[in-house]
């Protein structure tokens, strides 16, 4: 067993564990697609054969927050549905990540009025923002890869 730089035994072992867990988590993402609006069409395109999201390991949507670890907020969030978003986010178990898919979920999109929330990050913390109205499927895959990099480098709290 190697002695770490600050004299604490096992640091190198923990960092290897971090990397192994990160590798495992990033390639087996279970999404919860919280689909509201037009971006849902691009989500359907991404999930299907042409721009397959399954080859990145994220191909299985779980429609229960208890069984998923990635919340895809797809489309405009109105004030009427904010309690539902909060409840779904709180029901998910750790570790969990949130992706704001599309311009409306990131910052409100073209809708700046009495009914819409300017970005879902005013309700729940967001990890990756995917811009576009709606984003091309390639942009979504790029966002997913960035999220995977983020998951890989996340430190485990012990």
């Amino acid at each position: 067993m190697e002695i770490g730089s600050d004299g604490i035994p096992g640091v190198a072992l923990t960092s290897k564990l971090d990397l192994a867990l990160g590798w495992g988590r990033k390639y087996s993402l279970f999404l919860y697609p919280f689909v509201t609006a037009c971006c849902g069409m691009e989500y359907m395109s991404v999930a299907c054969a042409h721009y397959d999201i399954d080859r990145f390991g994220a191909g299985l949507p779980r429609f229960s927050p208890r069984q998923s670890d990635l919340l895809f907020v797809v489309g405009t969030i109105s004030h009427k549905i904010t309690p539902v978003v909060q409840i779904v986010y709180e029901q998910m178990t750790e570790p969990k990540w949130v992706v704001a898919f599309g311009a409306c979920a990131s910052a409100g999109g073209p809708y700046d009025n009495y009914a819409t929330v300017q970005g879902v990050d005013t309700i729940i913390p967001v990890d990756v923002y995917i811009p576009g109205c709606p984003p091309r499927p390639e942009t979504v895959l790029d966002g997913l890869i960035k999220l995977q990099q983020k998951i890989q480098t996340r430190k485990i709290e012990l």
Partner: peptide
């Protein structure tokens, strides 16, 4: 009503040709 995005109010606030982006959606 969970996706009410105020289409009519947005169209009233912008010009005639700008309304086509709201009708898209």
């Amino acid at each position: 009503g969970y996706l009410h995005r105020a289409f009519e109010k947005s169209v009233e606030a912008n010009s005639w040709n700008s309304a086509t982006i709201y009708t898209d959606r």
